[in-house]
Amino acid sequence: MPFSIATWNINSVRLRMPLVERLLAEYAPDVLCLQETKCPDDQFPSAAFRKIGYEHIAFHGQKGYHGVATVARRPLEIVEKRRFCEIDDSRHLSVRFDAGGKKVVLHNFYVPAGGDEPDVEINPKFRHKLGFVSEMNAIRADHDENSASVLVGDLNIAPLEHDVWSHKQLLNVVSHTPVETENFEAMRKAGEWVDLMRLNVPDDQKIYTWWSYRAKDWETSNRGRRLDHVWSSANLAPRLTGIEILSAARGWERPSDHVPVIARFDLD
């Protein structure tokens, strides 16, 4: 059976609910993970999701900042809302659901951006980001014959040379500095996660999921970065049938600076 998971940093779910509704109407993923919802739990637009068939909803939000949510057309069981770096800032949510005869645990992450200066001595936001990534080492791609794991979200790091528009010019820019990319890839490998977006795309090909609001013409300049990621346990990787990056969504009315990424699987 075809099965799909979408991830999108929406940059305010209430402000951009029309865009979310468009995504769900046109692409109908089975599960949608949102980041940067900027919405306290008691104000999450659950009714709007239920109206369009996404009746199963889990969220971990706060007023004005951060926040993650996972909505689905099938039952979800909340597993955990993990606290990182001893800060309560709504950056993680994990749920469990049934798909393809397996119990799938799905982690939805919004990693701190890290501020502008890549120096932990003068920038506490950057120190927080590195600490957060370090603690993510505890998130493992657990799986067996009857279970699997998926991790998605805005992880705010573009780890590979061709995950950014210019490796050379961005080496000292937060999201692509060596200390970030090396720790990030070490964390992914330690957890035995498979980078599904690179599974069938060679490392020397560009992949972007984010284009800055500061660009006058984001499409022409195309100075993007791959900040959004989709990982899985090893037993799901052979079932991947495709990854779609909806770059056109960056041109929708009042868009997020991130675009949706959809992973599709063939699950018996």
Rank of each mutant, 00 (worst) to 15 (best):
R223T: 14
T181W: 04
W211A: 15
S247A: 11
N222A: 12
L160H: 14
V261E: 05
I139S: 06
D144H: 07
R223A: 10
V150A: 09
D217N: 15
R223S: 15
D195C: 04
L236C: 06
E185G: 13
A249L: 03
S233G: 07
N222Y: 09
N235D: 07
N235L: 00
P159Y: 02
F265K: 00
E253Y: 03
H162N: 14
D195M: 04
V150Q: 05
P202K: 13
S175N: 13
R239E: 12
L236A: 02
D142E: 15
I157R: 13
E219T: 03
R264D: 04
E145P: 13
W165C: 09
V259L: 01
N183W: 14
E145W: 08
R264H: 07
V230C: 12
S166I: 07
E253F: 02
S175Y: 13
H258F: 02
G191H: 02
V179G: 01
N172E: 15
R225P: 10
R264E: 06
V194E: 07
Q205W: 05
T209R: 06
N156F: 13
M197T: 08
E180D: 01
E192G: 06
R250C: 13
S233L: 03
E253R: 10
P202I: 02
D142Q: 11
V150G: 07
I245Q: 01
L160Q: 06
R140M: 13
D154T: 12
D203Y: 05
L199E: 14
R214T: 07
I207V: 15
L170P: 03
I243P: 07
A148I: 02
W165L: 12
V179P: 06
D203P: 14
I245S: 03
D154N: 08
D257K: 01
A190D: 13
V173F: 04
N137D: 15
L155S: 11
W193I: 04
N156T: 08
Q169R: 11
R140Y: 10
T209M: 04
S212A: 12
S232T: 06
D217W: 06
I245H: 06
D163N: 05
S256G: 07
D217T: 10
V152Y: 09
A248V: 04
A263P: 04
A234G: 11
S134Q: 11
